[in-house]
Structure formats: structure tokens, C-alpha cells
Amino acid sequence: MRRPTEEAPWLRWVLCLAAVGVAVLFLVLPLVAVFAEAFRRGWGPVAKSLSDPDALAAVRLTLLVAAIAVPVNLVGGVAAAWAIAKFDFPGRRLLMVLIELPFSVSPVISGLVYVLVFGAQGWLGPWLEERGVQVVFALPGIVLATIFVTFPFVARTLIPLMQDQGRTEEEAAATLGAGGWRMFLHVTLPNIRWALLSGVLLCNARAMGEFGAVSVVSGHVRGETNTMPLHVEILYNEYQFVAAFAVAGLLALLALVTLAAKAMLERAG
């Protein structure tokens, strides 16, 4: 017999089918379309467009940018989470709001702010130019914009968890005479490792996939300041659709691996 808090079986089926239908048509089909468009003419053109020197340069730049941006946000995020979760201090709530700020700003604005500071007519632009340092339309600008858009990921995955865990274990370690670093490495880190890894994964996925912010500060020089997402745009605008979707497919693969890893981490943690 059906419990009074359950829907009729036919209604349950209709709702399940509707939800799956929405997910397939709206969420999954775009992903399928990327690979279908890329492999329209088989493996050959895909392999060729992925081994193109400009495509390889874009992959290298994307990896380099993520390799700088993710560790910066890892250190900053862990420091922020340690302070916010384990201590009470004036300005704690303000700090939490400020850390989330980059998520509520348009990617284009995230790039714009660096042009306003470092661009040719920016606050520091002329001064830097005299000294031969280029930030905007070069690697440093791309890295800065990427750090900005991926700024909150690590801190926001750690803070709720570390708050739940409280500070009794660390206090016990301190009472037993452990120094700060020893306590962090042996007590705190093992407790937060899965969440930390998950935050780093999300941060990395966004860092490699960021388009708007990077597009504003990149200057779009092929083979030099083009990251993978920007390379996709250039190819698409040149009507090289198979090549564009091949590089897009590579990025989509990264997204799928990230999602799978995140699901596994959630089960582990």
C-alpha cells in the first residue's frame, strides 16, 4: 500500500521522466554536441587540429597559467580558512564576504579591473612600460585575471568543514607541545585533505576553462597569449569548426574528469 506521504506511482514516473528529459535535453545534449561536431569527419581532422603548433602553444599556456594560479589560491585559501574557521577576530564576517566577492563579479569585469590598473592608460601602466614590464596582453595579466576568478574556491570548500570540526583536536595537539606547523601537518591537514583536493580540482577546472576575464587581458596573440578557450573562439570565428570543437572537446573532457573526481572525493570524504 502507498504511504500517505508518497505520490501515486504514475505521478512518480511522470516526474522522473520529466526530470531526466530536462537533464538530457538541456544539460547533456550540449556535451554530446561538442564531441559529435568534433568527430564529424572522424579522428583524422581531430588529431590534426590538436597537433597544430598554435593549439599546442595554447595547451601549454593554459597549463602554465593554472600551474601558477592554483598554488597561489591554495596558499591564500588555506590561510583564510585557518583564520576564519579557527579564530574569532574583528572583521571576520567582512573577510568572509570579501573572499566571496570575485564570484559575484562578471568575468569581463574581472579582466577589466586589471586593465584599469596595468593597461596602457591604467594607474601603473605607464610606469611599468618605462621599465619594460608588460602585464596586460601578456602572461602576468592572464595569470592575475585567472587568480581573481578562481579566488574563492579553496577557501569556500574549507571554511564550513573546518568550522564543523572545531578546534579541540588542534588544541589537544598544542597542549601536548606540538608547534604550529607540526599541528597543521599532522592534525589539520589529514582532516581536511579530501575537501582541500576537491577545492583544488574545482579551482583548476575553472582556471583552465576561464574565458571572459582572460579574453579581456590576453590580446589574443596566436601561439603567444592564447589560452585554450581563447583558441577555441579564434578557430570558431575563422569557420574552422572541426578544429574549434576538437579543442573544445579537450576542455569538455577536463570538465568530465573533474566531475567524476569530485563525485569520487565526495564518497571518500
Binding site: 544539460l27 576553462g209 576561464e210 578557450p229 574549434a244 573544445a248 568530465l256 566531475l259 563525485a263
Partner: peptide
């Protein structure tokens, strides 16, 4: 898992696909 696809998919890829 599919719900998070729009989070994970780079925006340029989503744009092209759509």
C-alpha cells in the same frame, strides 16, 4: 552528477555547444 555540468563546462565550450 549531470546537474553540475554547467558549473564544470568552460563557458566558451558551453557557448559553442549551445
Amino acid at each position: 552528477a549531470a546537474i553540475d555540468l554547467p558549473f564544470a563546462l568552460p563557458t566558451a565550450v558551453a557557448g559553442l555547444a549551445l
